[in-house]
Design a binder for these strands. Structure first.
Length: 685
DNA sequence: CTAGGGTTAG
């Protein structure tokens, strides 16, 4: 074997096993032996540095090359793609065109994938066009990538068309199509295609099983999932480390809430991989069993496996959901120390965590510092701003992202519409809504209409709101009628309210919320008998609301309160401080606690509860008592599982006048930032 | 020499 061939072989080994140190040594030897300008070796070097995550060096090698062929270009593109920079791959693709180098099937496949990741259908279609012209379209590699691209861009029918006209299909074609249905959330179609695949004599591989397990977990179909599990066992694949199905298997049982079974599978895996670890950790965390989740996470950290971006982002997502600021911050600090902490999904989850915990400034700084932002990064920020009542900021970001050439998707539109709704930006949202209808008709969901109904309803344009529901091309859900009903109450429209209420009770008669809303509407107009009749129905049906619960984090410990809760050791002190606050508010600003607010308002709390003390007030009391306010800090964070009650809302607003403290309350719907007697929601929530 | 399918975040 000649020397260059030996070097090539060494480099390929480094690529495969991510051996950067050895790769650098080989690079040195290549230069020393005078092969520094060998085209093939340089191609291998670009590939090796890319695989080892050293894109700067890969680019440097590429730039210094005296001649470059299609492989050089493609290797660099793949490097960018594998390091999470799909955009750079696409820009290289067009540069390659200017350099008059013709793409081959690998180049096309790589950039189709890049377009899919970015979700830019236009770009993908353009590349599809190139494939069609050069008849690369009929090569399975390319065709499969086209299916993948269309699926990821939400154009499942285009993907299906490609699949149906492919002259040669391999197992990956079937897998890609099944994965496409999964992305769309269409588990039934995935199951059907799986059957068809077996009828056609195609043998499913691990990837097929992985996708199918995922389809089952989406459908919550434990039965079908268990069958797949069984056939995996007969084929002898499930418990070895090389396969990815193990993770999907754990995930299936986790999602179907069969945690015991998930643990059993996990324990049987001889060499556990990161995917199965993450799935199980997430399972425990979502059940609220954080100690077990954290214990497993520590074990993962100490194991020989690398904690990857998937594990991190999902765990941070749990901290966000539980609004656990301290744990979240600690995890953020940890992510900075490891390479996968730079994964865009990890940074996105940290952003979301900060916003959900009410730390907008931290989120803003992190967002600006990010080296690459994708559609999710922007959407997280827009949602966060919207929930903080910063509608103008949300709109500004929405426009800015498009200048950054990031295409908003259905979730982004939902975020900006709801931000507009909360800030009363009617014209803006109507413009965005129609733009969305025009450009992404297929992605429009009931939620988008619900946003518009909310917006119109709040503005008192009830008739228009109702028309919109009745004319929309989708089946109205109970939720959208609820939105309209609360608008009816807001504007005291009894006639329409009664009509909507009847529709709701027919549609969703087992949800106590519907009865409470209707009952309140009657009570507002002093139709006490009707109000009482509706409330009686709730009792007769034995329907129960979720109990109101608030919590506050003090010195890394979370304290929970129910309404009228007297179990906390500091209860007496809490009541004292709350009384003292009422007194100060009365003396200093003349605020008098309004009793009548809660007389017939049973929106969140029952009458009995309101005579005692709401959970959010207790949590505030504890924060004040136990010095939850550290030196130099003037912000207290309270969390509540339901919506904050109107009475407490007024109380907190006035409290900020007397105490010069900022309160951030995260309730089921949104954030309220109280400062100087005002709330970020503008008293509309 | 370059490549395609799976787990995560809104």
């Amino acid at each position: 074997m000649s020397e260059p061939q030996v070097f090539a072989k060494l480099l390929r080994n480094c690529s495969k096993n991510h051996l950067l140190g050895q790769g650098v040594q080989v690079h040195g030897a290549i230069v020393k032996m005078g092969f520094g300008h060998d085209l093939m070796l340089n191609n291998d070097l670009v590939d090796m540095y890319g695989k080892c995550g050293m894109m700067e060096v890969a680019c440097d090698v590429f730039d210094r090359m005296l001649e470059r062929n299609v492989v050089s270009w493609t290797a660099l593109m793949c490097g960018h793609l594998q390091n999470g920079n799909a955009r750079e791959s696409l820009s290289l693709f067009s540069k390659m065109g200017y350099a008059e180098v013709e793409p081959n099937e690998f180049t096309l496949s790589t950039n189709l994938k890049a377009s899919g990741i970015l979700g830019i259908a236009e770009n993908g279609m353009q590349i599809h066009g190139v494939c069609a012209k050069s008849s690369f379209e009929w090569m399975p590699v390319v065709g499969n990538s086209i299916i993948d691209m269309y699926s990821k861009c939400g154009r499942i029918s285009d993907a299906a068309r490609m699949f149906s006209i492919m002259p040669v299909r391999n197992v990956i074609s079937w897998n890609s199509m099944i994965a496409g249905y999964n992305i769309e959330g269409n588990g039934e179609k995935a199951l059907l295609l799986f059957q068809k695949m077996q009828k056609n004599g195609e043998v499913p591989d691990e990837y097929t099983y992985t996708s199918m397990l995922k389809a089952c977990s989406c459908l919550g179909a434990v039965g079908e999932g268990t069958q797949l599990h069984a056939s995996l066992i007969t084929r002898g694949i499930p418990y070895s480390a090389q396969t990815t199905v193990t993770g999907a298997l754990v995930d299936l049982y986790v999602k179907c809430r069969h945690l015991f079974e998930a643990r059993r599978v996990f324990n049987q895996i001889r060499q556990k991989n990161v995917i199965s670890w993450s799935a199980l950790i997430l399972g425990y965390a979502q059940e609220g069993n954080l100690p077990e989740a954290m214990y497993l996470f520590r074990q993962l950290r100490e194991s020989r496996y690398q904690v990857d971006g998937f594990a991190l982002s999902s765990l941070i997502g749990v901290f966000a959901d539980f609004a656990l600021v301290e744990q979240g911050k600690q995890m953020h600090a940890y992510t900075i120390k490891i390479p996968s902490g730079l994964d865009i999904s990890v940074v996105n989850s940290v952003l979301d965590m900060y916003l959900k915990c009410g730390l907008t400034d931290e989120a803003e700084i992190l967002f600006r510092e990010m080296e690459a932002r994708n559609v999710i990064s922007w959407t997280v920020m827009i949602t966060g701003y919207g929930k903080h009542g910063l509608g103008k900021e949300a709109v500004r970001l929405f426009n800015e992202m498009q200048l950054d050439r990031i295409e908003p998707d259905g979730v982004t539109y939902l975020a900006v519409l709801s931000a507009c709704s909360h800030s009363g930006l009617i014209e803006e949202s109507q413009e965005y809504f129609s733009r969305f209808c025009d450009s992404q008709q297929s992605k429009i969901k009931v939620e988008h209409y619900a946003c518009m109904v909310d917006l119109l309803g709040r503005a008192g344009r009830l008739k228009e709101a109702k028309d919109l529901i009745q004319k929309m091309p989708l089946k109205p859900t109970a939720g959208i009628w609820q939105t309209l009903l609360s608008a009816c109450r807001m504007h005291g429209d009894l006639d329409m309210g009664r009509e909507v209420g009847e529709i709701l009770l027919r549609l969703d008669g087992n949800n106590p919320v519907n009865y409470v809303m209707l009952s309140n509407l009657y009570a507002d107009s002093r139709y006490w008998k009707d109000s009482e009749r509706i409330r009686h129905m709730v009792k007769m049906k034995g329907l129960k609301k979720e109990a109101g619960r608030s919590w506050v984090e003090i010195d890394k410990e979370v304290h929970y309160f129910y309404n009228g809760d007297g179990t906390h050791p500091l209860t007496e002190k809490i009541h004292e401080v709350l009384k003292e606050m009422e007194k100060r508010m009365k003396e200093e600003i003349g605020y008098v606690h309004k009793v009548n607010f809660s007389l017939h308002d049973v929106d969140e709390e029952s009458k009995e509860d309101s005579l005692r003390v709401h959970s959010e007030k207790l949590a505030i009391g504890l924060a004040l008592v136990s010095g939850g306010l550290k030196e130099g800090e003037r912000l207290i964070r309270i969390f509540k599982n339901l919506r904050v009650c109107g009475d407490c809302h007024t109380f907190i607003k006035n409290l900020t006048k007397v105490l010069k403290i900022v309160f951030v309350v995260r309730d089921a719907n949104r954030f309220h930032r109280f400062e100087n007697g005002l709330c970020s929601c503008g008293d509309y929530w």
